[in-house]
Design a protein around this nucleic acid. Structure first.
Length: 590
RNA sequence: GGGGCCGUCGUUCAGCCAGGUUAGGACGCCAGAUUGUCAAUCUGGAAGUCGCGGGUUCAAAUCCCGUCGGCCCCGCCA
């Protein structure tokens, strides 16, 4: 028996037709003389009726059916008796009167039932992913992912882009994330690295004259996992020649808007708002602000400098700052809750968290109120209203922003300030070229070492490198970094200078990036690009809470696959062939 | 490397703080009944080394220590 229709498409127009459906038994309801079976496939659910009066023999066969058996049935589409329609199902007005049944496979009782309302723990779902993938919600997410990939390919092909694959076995480079390594059997003691991104290859493609490249590229980073981070993930990656950053931002903005419109009928703003890195840090304490709620950071450094509170005054005098969050209706917070906030602020890196309640009659209520002139504070912080709670952090800028930025998010969630129906994309631009890394006592690239500096900041590179801005851009959606890119350095002299500033020696630069430097000497066009995190995009678009739901076979937080039990030990002969000996304390046995 | 939450029949939870009967509910499973259900219903039944190891105790699911696993976070993620 071969199926004539899928399980989601039959309707009143098909009544009278003889059809064949194939799929899984989703549920069985036995009424004695009549048995109802719901048959499920990717497309939907259809009710089958086995009536002992119509076909006694088939009815006894149906009696043996259990959940997740795989069957095909042939029968006549009929109208459901009046009053027994199921308006929750697209196929709820019809049913199939079964005439024949093929049982392809039985299923033993399974560890959890296939339904959207998941009762199973995530580890159980991952261990039996084949069952989990049968759930309509999971199928919907993978369908969404496929649709987005299709729209992306269509969009770039229409714009003259070439889809080009870059190597998975490639060269380990310094800087950036930890590499996944692959031993080379043919070259004992040497290793390939899996790509953290196709960065260098796509630049080489531009130098190779391909002009416009894109790829839906798998990337690998051996770092610890998070809700939105997997060790292997997928980027929508592109690079273009002879463009400026506005060209790339506009191109990718159109793609994102197209994807939201086509898949979810969501209209994103046009154009996306832009914040400089500096503005974003100053106002939200982060470079990936969630703009679905306001609760900004207020700068009170000028006021703090003149107040009597030593902690505030000294912070500013020492080159730091004082900023505040104004928590609406925060006077209702109990002392205990405020103490918890103080603890949290300390965990985030603050020395403390000062607080003042502004009472309904406009007075200051706090143990530190005596240090402040109420009128001066109200003037310095006009956003504060009676009934609000003011939270202050006084420290150097990085700490103030980090602590208040995280408190802002925490309070946004706790106070339900986030409008879940809103979509707030934005660009963050003008990132600094470098930041100073205390650990290694040197400058490190904030983006990556191939990012071009702002033309007008080139002079700052040597004099005040930390002041130099780049032609980089990040696209942020609802507080998640969706992607980032930059205009690249195309001058070999500039590239060497940047390596120099990063304290990468000439020899090391030659060894690790020689091919790029040579390529830049060969006539490199100005170029730039961007990469979007496809998994995160699907997570946001599909409104699911974890990146793991967007990946058919994800890793756990320990970077293991519960389905296949990878990674695993290998036979000693395999290691020997690769000239590898493990130093693991407990060498696992294969 | 660090902090937090969790681990009890196939599944999901209660019981743990205040140690003491036969470890309980729901879903699922099995059997029977049942001709209009779609979370079907009714009756009956089976099902647990309480993650693992050690300790305290007359007695441990419960208290203590260690360990393994899942999740969230910090560090890390150019």
């Amino acid at each position: 028996m071969k199926r004539s229709h899928n399980c989601g498409e039959l309707a009143l127009t098909h009544v009278g037709n003889t059809v064949t459906l194939a799929g899984w038994v989703a549920s069985r309801r036995d009424h004695g003389g009549v048995i109802f079976i719901d048959i499920r496939d990717r497309y939907g659910l259809t009710q089958i009726v086995f009536d002992s009066e119509d076909n006694a023999q088939l009815h006894t066969v149906a009696d043996r059916l259990r959940n997740e058996y795989v069957i095909a049935i042939t029968g006549k589409v009929s109208v459901r008796p009046e009053g027994s329609e199921n308006t929750h199902l697209p196929t709820g007005h019809i049913e199939i009167q079964a005439d024949a049944l093929d049982l392809y496979n039985e299923a033993k009782p399974l560890p959890f039932s296939v339904e959207d309302d998941v009762h199973a723990s995530e580890s159980l779902r991952l261990e039996h992913r084949y069952l989990d993938l049968r759930r309509p919600k999971m199928q919907e997410l993978l369908q969404l992912r496929s649709q987005v990939a299709y729209l992306t390919r269509q969009y770039f092909h229409d714009q003259q882009f070439l889809e080009i694959e870059t190597p998975i076995l490639t060269k380990s480079t310094p800087e950036g994330a930890r590499d996944y390594l692959v031993p080379s059997r043919v070259n004992p003691g040497e290793f390939f690295a899996l790509p953290q991104s196709p960065q260098l290859f796509k630049q080489i493609l531009m130098i190779g004259g391909l002009d416009r490249y894109f790829q839906i590229a798998r990337c690998f980073r051996d770092e610890d996992l998070r809700l939105d981070r997997q060790p292997e993930f997928t980027q929508i990656d592109l690079e273009m020649s002879f463009v400026d950053r506005e060209d790339i931002m506009s191109l990718i903005e159109h793609l994102i808007r197209l994807i939201f419109k086509e898949t979810k009928q969501i209209d994103l703003p046009h154009p996306f708002p832009q914040l400089t890195f500096e503005e974003s840090m100053a106002r939200y304490g982060t470079d990936k602000p969630d703009l679905r709620f306001d609760l900004p950071l207020h700068d009170l450094s000028a006021f703090a400098k003149t107040c009597d509170f030593q902690v505030f005054r000294r912070a500013v005098e020492d080159g730091g700052m004082v900023k505040a969050l104004v928590v609406p209706k925060g006077t209702a917070f109990t002392r205990n809750r405020i103490d918890n906030l103080i603890d949290t602020a300390r965990e985030f890196g603050a020395k403390g968290l000062a607080w003042i309640k502004m009472t309904e009659d406009g007075e200051l209520d706090s143990s530190i109120a005596k240090f402040f002139n109420g009128q001066d504070l109200r003037t310095a912080l006009p956003a504060a209203n009676p009934g609000d709670l003011l939270l202050f952090v006084a420290d150097k800028a990085t700490i103030v922003h980090q602590v208040l930025g995280r408190l802002r998010l925490l309070l946004g969630e706790e106070l339900a300030l986030i409008d879940q129906t809103r979509w707030e994309p934005l660009w963050v631009i003008d990132f600094p070229m470098f930041e100073y890394d205390e650990a290694s006592q040197r400058h490190v690239a904030l983006h990556h070492p191939f990012t071009a500096p702002h033309p007008e900041d080139e002079d700052l590179l040597e004099s005040e490198p930390l002041q130099a801005k780049t032609l980089a851009y990040d696209v942020v959606l609802n507080g998640f970094e969706l992607g980032g890119g930059s205009i690249r350095i195309h001058s070999p002299r500039m590239q060497e200078k940047v390596f120099d500033l990063l304290k990468i020696s000439k020899e090391e630069a030659r060894e690790k990036f020689g091919f790029l430097l040579d390529a830049l000497e060969s006539g490199a066009p100005p170029h730039g690009g961007i990469a979007l995190g496809l998994d995160r995009l699907i997570m946001l678009l599909g409104q699911t809470e974890s990146i793991r739901d967007t990946i058919p076979f994800p890793k756990t937080q320990k970077a293991q696959c519960l389905l296949t039990h990878a990674p695993s030990s290998v036979a000693p002969e395999q290691l020997q062939e690769l000239s590898i000996r493990t130093t693991a304390k407990k060498p696992a046995t294969p």
